[in-house]
Design a binder for these strands. Structure first.
Lengths: 239, 239
DNA sequence: CGACTTCTTGAGGAACGTCAACCGCAGTGG
DNA sequence: CCACTGCGGTTGACGTTCCTCAAGAAGTCG
């Protein structure tokens, strides 16, 4: 892992997307002054409490004592990551799932609490609420859905990621930003099961795997229905 | 559901606990002025974006299309509930799990965004971060743990709730604040399975069910080990 | 006492995790 | 050029687990 200290204002250092490109210049400089950029490869861990994903994908990774691996949350380009209230031991570590750049903001924690910079505080508050909603959504996905339903759900989640470009999005093509094994650890199934699920979806002509990391949603209404709980376990009772 | 409008400052209306009793009087009055108190019974829904639990237990409830019920998050006395960024949770509702009082703050949303009241914004930000960490924790619990591990984990979660009084906490007694069926919907198992799990834990002398809603943690180290992933599925390979 | 709710117990089967082997591909080195 | 290796992903066989369904206990209220 390579650290690069910012010694001056470098406006290009914030992701060029909402909400970061809406900040006024003083706020931007305030953020960047006490920050540094970390360049990460897959499986690199980074010890930070606060930061912004510039490129790539990060995740909160937890290892259970028997070796099972869990991805509690995923972060894409532009996401603010805030682990400040997370007891380190229980929460796990921040890990890169692919080559990434992470802007560490640990130094500006104080700057945010002070009322001086209201626009920054507002942006951060918005991100917090957004991620809270997403995390609850994810929890709801995990609670009682079948692997098939979880898989359909995560497809729609990836569709909303910035990795899917607009052209593809219009064609209902979804860019899969992470590896199968990571998806599996994120939705709580084994890679083998996930593989079988994808084949099943293909067999029912609901999706089409164009490339390894690009999937066409062929029948969105049916997929939506499945993602929303339309494929419970089979009852033993004959219908 | 009964609504009561506050027509004047009523300092007793905020929960008498951290962080609410730390607010200065102007902030408190600012919160209360545009708020109203909702009195709820079990299964009562309430349509609100922002509020504080005064007494009781609320939850974010989502119903899957086939009738499965999911509790995505639990809230106890003193918790701030913020659903402002929840789009998909639109299908999820706030529901009371027992007779409760909920202080609805929808009216003060604007007051918080404005920088005028920094202390309120700070308190809310802290609550957001706290709940975000909890929600990720819960997600990690749900991803790949066995029902036994989930049950052990949720016991420790309830131990941290204010419902467990200090006397009991010292004796490793945990107050179970909600019904079995709600716990089951929260950790994603069937009530039948949960019942069997509890009996199993009792059989191994790890817990003792003193009353229906009070459980003694008899062997905390072992329970901690289980909650942290010490009871994976059995391998088919002979040890 | 019945009517209701909540929780428990029991039996049976589908599902998903476990393990093992295989495939395709990329990089490496002889 | 081909063997070798490593990695990510897939396929297949098998067995435990936990869901499903149904019925019984236990507690509460009229």
């Amino acid at each position: 892992m390579e650290k690069r200290q910012h010694d001056g204002p470098d406006l290009a250092a914030l992701p060029n997307r909402l909400p970061w490109n809406q900040l006024d210049e003083p706020s931007t400089r305030g953020l960047l002054n006490a920050s540094y950029l970390a360049t990460l490869n897959r499986h690199d861990h980074i010890d930070a409490e606060l930061g912004i994903v510039r490129v790539g994908v990060l995740a909160i990774e937890r290892a259970l004592s028997d070796g099972r691996r869990v991805l509690a949350d995923l972060f894409h380009e532009g996401d603010l990551i805030d682990l400040s209230q997370s007891k380190r031991v229980r929460e796990g570590q921040l890990v890169a799932l692919k080559p990434s750049e992470f802007l560490v903001l640990d130094g500006v924690r104080s700057e945010i609490s002070t009322v001086g910079n209201a626009s920054i505080a507002q942006v951060i508050m918005l991100q917090l609420r957004h991620h809270l909603a997403r995390s609850r959504d994810h929890a709801a996905d995990l609670v009682s859905k079948t692997p098939l339903e979880k898989a359909a759900s995560v497809l729609f989640e990836f569709q909303r990621w910035p990795d899917t470009n607009d052209d593809d999005r219009q064609r209902n093509m979804v860019k899969i930003p992470i590896q199968r094994v990571d998806i599996a650890d994120y939705i709580g199934v084994k890679p083998e099961t996930l593989s079988r699920i994808v084949r099943q979806l293909e067999g029912e002509f609901l999706v089409k795997v164009v490339e390894q990391d690009r999937i066409l949603l062929a029948d969105i209404p049916s997929l939506r229905r499945i993602a929303n709980g339309g494929r419970p376990r089979c009852s033993t009772k004959k219908a």
